[in-house]
Nucleic acid binder design. Structure first.
Lengths: 155, 155
DNA sequence: CCGATATTGTTATGATCATAACGATATCGA
DNA sequence: TCGATATCGTTATGATCATAACAATATCGG
């Protein structure tokens, strides 16, 4: 096995040598999300679903039919993004779309029977997956994390 | 102004009606990262840099020349991803590449003088940006968040 | 020394993401 | 009523992301 390349760089003097990327919360958040997302894909990947796709299905399951735009806001996706996700789910017959008769701008999205059945299979898997992601924390720390993250997410 | 579409769906009975997407930590992490990332782009967007690009430059600033692969691991990016980021930074002459003479597999990446100067301008901006992201939290809560996120990120 | 194994980097594919510009539709206000 | 304004969805562009397959190179073990 070749050695892992940890070739030390020449010690260059830097003006802000006490700066550490690890202390930037955005970097930490990105890595923690990577971990959570890969945990999920590991478990539901056999269904060929990604985390955003699962979130979309779960939201529809919670709320019933929604306009594409509102659905996007409820899963934190821009109009251009939720559009693509809906197209993929629609291609697989997990959701169905129809025009809103009273507001011709809207496209209403809802789960198909197939989609609803799938979500019901996935929900317990996702709950177990969340437990895996949170495994390094105690119960009280998990509650605390939820509170802190919610406040960051909502600004 | 047209009303915001909050058209209530027909109240459909769901098997797991107590499930809430908000309680899934991956969803929270994704939204929190979105916030942090958009805070950063808001401040450094005028430099035409994204958060991953900034992280890459900052890491090189901290560590000096690194192989492309190791650089990728240190910014949590897959080989295929760090490659593209390096290409964009190289095109803008913010980094330079050269072959490692002793290991012909490696591509060594380092900041150019221009890149180093840019990082030195960006670091204080990024620190201020982190403060903005963390504004909803008290100092003790910020320390706690770092500890909890680090443990999640490292598994 | 030399074949098995590991690492590095590339290519290809497909899914997120954000942003800006745009037409169609809906609502508001004078 | 009707023009100004807002919302919805689409299109286009470009940057992340993950994964798998692959060639080139390096290292290890016998």
């Amino acid at each position: 096995m070749p050695r892992t390349s940890t070739k030390a760089a020449a010690p260059i003097r830097r003006l802000a040598s006490d700066y550490r990327l690890e202390e930037q919360v955005g970097f930490l958040l990105r890595r923690a999300y990577q971990r959570a997302s890969s945990n999920l894909v590991e478990r539901i990947g056999s269904y060929d679903l990604t985390a955003p796709q699962y979130a979309t299905l779960a939201r529809l399951y919670e709320r019933g039919a929604l306009s594409q735009n509102l659905l996007g806001r409820l899963v934190a996706m821009e109009p251009a993004n939720i559009r693509d996700v809906v197209l993929r789910l629609k291609k697989r017959r997990l959701v169905a779309t129809r025009r809103d008769p009273t507001d011709k701008r809207l496209i209403l999205i809802d789960l198909t029977a197939t989609g609803a059945t799938l979500v019901e299979q996935l929900i317990p898997i996702e709950i177990a997956c969340t437990a895996t992601t949170l495994a390094p924390l105690r119960a009280d720390q998990r509650r605390l994390l939820y509170d802190l993250l919610s406040r960051l997410a909502d600004g």
